[in-house]
Amino acid sequence: MKQPVWDLPVRLFHWLLAALIAFSWWSVKYDHTSWHIWSGCAILTLLIFRFLWGFVGSSTARFSSFVRGPGAVVDYLRGKWTGSGHTPLGALSVVALLLAVSVQVGMGLFAEDEDGIYMGPLARLVSSDTSDKVRDIHALWFYVILGLIVLHVLAILYYRLFRGQKLTKPMITGRAELSPGTAPMRPGKWWVAVVCLAIGLGITRWIIAGAPPL
C-alpha cells in the first residue's frame, strides 16, 4: 500500500520553484526584466517559506530528518539505509540546490540592469559599480544552478532506469510504496504552513520596499 512521503507544501514548493526558475531564465533572456525581478521576489518568498517549514513542517520536510553527515551517505551507498523522504545522498543535492538558489536570489536583489532602467529592490543600498559586478556574477551563477538541475534530473533518470524507482510520481501525488518497517511521513499542521507563508510574504514585502528601518 502506498504511504504518504511528501506533504502538499513540499510538493507545491518544489513545482513552483521549478516553474519560477524556468520563468526567470526565459524572462531575462527575452528582455522582460521587470517580470524577471518579480519572479525573483516570488522565489524569495518560497525560499523563506521552505526554510521555516524545514524546522516546523512534516517529518520529511525537516532539515533534521535529512541533513546528515558523511557517515550516513556512506551507509546509504552500502545499501544500509532505510527510511522515507530524502536519502542521505539526495539530501546533499537538495541542500546544494536550496543554497545555490538562495545565493542567486540574494545577488539579484542587489543587481541592476546594464542600462540603469531596472534595479533589484536592494540595489540602491550599494554603489552602481558594485551593482553591475553583482549582475555579472548573478548571470554566471545561473550555470551553477543549471549544473545542479542537470545532476538532479540525471539522478532521477538513473533511479528510474537502473534501480526501478519512480521518484517523480511521489513528488506529484505525495505517496510512495515504502519498504516494510519504514515509518511514513508524520504530517505538519496546515495552519503552521500558513504562518510560514505569511512570514515569507511579509519579509519579501519589506525587501521590495528597499528594507527600510523598522
Binding site: 542600462d115 540603469g116 532602467i117 540602491r124
Partner: peptide, 12 residues
Amino acid sequence: GKAMKQLHRGLD
C-alpha cells in the same frame, strides 16, 4: 547607462 544608474540613486 552610468548617468541613468546615478540618476536612480540621486532620486532615491
